[in-house]
Structure formats: structure tokens, C-alpha cells
Amino acid sequence: MTIRALLIDDDPDTRALLALALSSDGRFTVEAMSRFDAASELHRDAAGYDALLVHLLESEGEGAALITAIRQWAPALPIVTLGAAGTIAKPVDPLALPTQLAEMLEA
């Protein structure tokens, strides 16, 4: 089964690197976007994703606010957070990310 993941990170370089790492692994198809674009995409089609990876911005709280909104649109959607206080700490090891994410989703 292919997992359709949405990667949400406001840093375009990080977004591109992590999206490449996941899409290079045969288990994932990935869309990557900023939190601003992701909010409208998820409001429109949250059911179209199997998992979300959200970068938590510790100083501003935007990632947490987005997660709160997502929980209203899709309460059962698995969300993996990236960041110092996240499920996966940053800096993320792009080579390990596909396996980390797959294991988390299987648990």
C-alpha cells in the first residue's frame, strides 16, 4: 500500500529535501507545501491524505494552530510533528525519515 503524505514546512529547502527523501522510498507519495497552502488544501481535501508531517515552529506556534484546525476537519488523520518538541526531532535525517514514518504509522 502506498501512503499519501502531506509534508508541511515553511522552509522551501527543507520541504524539498524531505519530500525527495520520502518520494524516493516506494512506500510514499508526497505533496509538500507551506502551512498557508496546506490549510486551504486540508480544508478542501483532508480525507485525501493518509498522514501529515507538520513542522512545529516553537517560537510562533503556527504549527500547533494548524494542527488544531486539522483536528476539526479530519480528527482521525495521523499527524507526525517535526521540530525540537516534535515526534521527530529536527534536524531530520532524510535517509531515516521514510522508515521512521512508516514505523510510526504502523504502530
Rank of each mutant, 00 (worst) to 15 (best):
A5G: 10
A39L: 12
L42Q: 04
I67W: 01
V92E: 14
R15T: 02
I79N: 06
V92C: 10
A102P: 01
T87H: 13
L53R: 06
A85H: 13
R27W: 01
E106S: 11
G86E: 08
E103S: 09
L6W: 00
L95N: 09
P94R: 04
G61E: 02
T14G: 09
D50Y: 01
A84W: 04
F36E: 14
K90N: 10
I3E: 03
S23G: 07
F28P: 01
D13V: 14
S23E: 15
R4W: 01
V80N: 01
I67E: 14
R35A: 14
T68H: 03
D37H: 08
G26N: 13
A47N: 10
D37L: 13
D45Y: 00
H43V: 04
M1E: 07
D45L: 03
A65K: 15
P12K: 05
A47P: 00
L18K: 03
A96F: 01
A5Q: 00
A102T: 03
A47Q: 04
M104H: 05
I70A: 03
A46F: 04
S34K: 05
L82P: 15
V30I: 13
L17E: 15
L20R: 12
S23C: 04
T99H: 09
M33L: 12
L18C: 04
T2F: 00
A76M: 08
P94Q: 04
L57T: 12
T87V: 06
A96S: 12
R4T: 08
E31M: 12
R44L: 10
D37A: 15
S59Q: 13
